[in-house]
Simulated scan of single mutants.
Amino acid sequence: MARLRVRVHLDAGGHVGPGRADLLAHIATLGSIAAAGRAMGMSYRRAWELVEALNDAFSAPLVQTAHGGARGGGASLTPLGEEVLHRYRAIVDAATQATMANLVALQALAPPPARKPD
Rank of each mutant, 00 (worst) to 15 (best):
A101Q: 13
Y44E: 13
E49H: 08
T99F: 05
A114S: 15
M42H: 00
R87Y: 10
Y88E: 01
L50E: 01
A36S: 06
V51E: 01
T29W: 10
A34D: 12
L30C: 05
A101V: 12
G73E: 04
A75M: 04
K116H: 12
H26N: 13
Q64I: 11
H26D: 12
A53G: 06
A110K: 15
R38V: 09
T99R: 07
A12C: 14
L54Q: 02
H67D: 14
H86C: 11
T29F: 08
H9G: 13
R20K: 15
R45E: 10
T29A: 14
Q107L: 15
M40T: 03
V6L: 12
L54I: 00
D56P: 07
H67E: 14
F58H: 06
G31S: 02
G72D: 02
R45T: 11
L4C: 08
N55I: 01
A90P: 09
A95G: 08
E49P: 03
P112C: 06
R46W: 09
R3C: 12
A34S: 14
R87F: 09
A75C: 03
V84S: 01
L4I: 10
P18F: 03
L80R: 04
L23W: 01
G13R: 09
A110S: 15
A12K: 15
R20C: 07
L50N: 04
A95Q: 11
